[in-house]
């Protein structure tokens, strides 16, 4: 067994441990910290699987921004999670197990990891690889797919993120201006 698979197995085992801990811990600040570690671990798994772009996004969004957003939310709410008062935990357990079983069943149809005959590598990918330096003139294929072939898609995504950013800024800034008014009244 080489080190690559040891790293794979250990990273996934860490993720399982952290996920169970997130469910069991009641301190919400600790949970935010554990989420940050969980994101770093999944980014590590993506890196091992050679998906550098996805790992990059996961680290920036998962470990960076989401942790900060969760902490910002914690400033508005309590530090402790209330004990759940659900009457029947068995129903929730059954729903989770059925959903998980369906997902695992769904993976049986997927092509093997890294299979060159997989449909995703047969459809438009050869064209991107062969033609994109000529057609677009950007040496990096991922950039030419994102910025040119799927330009409208990227524009839509950027619009969504921009709107979300404005909304968050408005929510966070609202409180600041209100407190300034309070301060002035006290003065």
């Amino acid at each position: 067994m080489n080190l690559d698979s040891v790293i794979d197995i250990l990273l996934l085992a860490f993720m399982a441990v952290i996920a169970i801990a997130i469910v069991r811990i009641r301190d919400l600040f600790g949970i935010a910290m554990l989420f940050s570690i969980f994101s770093l671990l999944s980014a590590g798994v993506f890196t091992v699987m050679d998906a550098a772009d996805v790992a990059f996004t996961e680290a920036a969004v998962g470990a960076g921004i989401s942790t900060i957003l969760m902490l910002a939310t914690l400033t508005r709410t309590a530090r402790k999670e209330k004990p759940s008062n659900s009457k029947n935990p068995a129903v929730a357990l059954i729903v989770v197990f059925v959903t998980g079983a369906l997902l695992v069943f769904g993976t049986s149809d997927l092509p093997r990891f890294g299979d060159p005959q997989a449909p995703v590598h047969q459809h438009v990918a050869p064209r991107y690889i062969e033609e994109s330096p000529k057609e677009i003139g950007i040496p990096n294929m991922v950039t030419s797919v994102l910025a040119s072939y799927r330009g409208y898609d990227t524009l839509g995504e950027t619009t969504v993120i921009f709107t979300a950013g404005i909304a968050v800024m408005a929510l966070l800034g609202m409180r600041r201006s209100r407190r300034r008014e309070d301060d002035e009244e006290i003065d």
Binding site: M33, A52, A55, A59, A63, T67, T75, G173, R176
Partner: peptide, 27 residues
Amino acid sequence: DIALAYALINFIGIVAVLKFFEYGEFS
């Protein structure tokens, strides 16, 4: 390069967390 970017994200994240603890808010 990715490792370097992670180091930066880690640093910024920890600074944000500590700021949260010093002031109780980010603004």
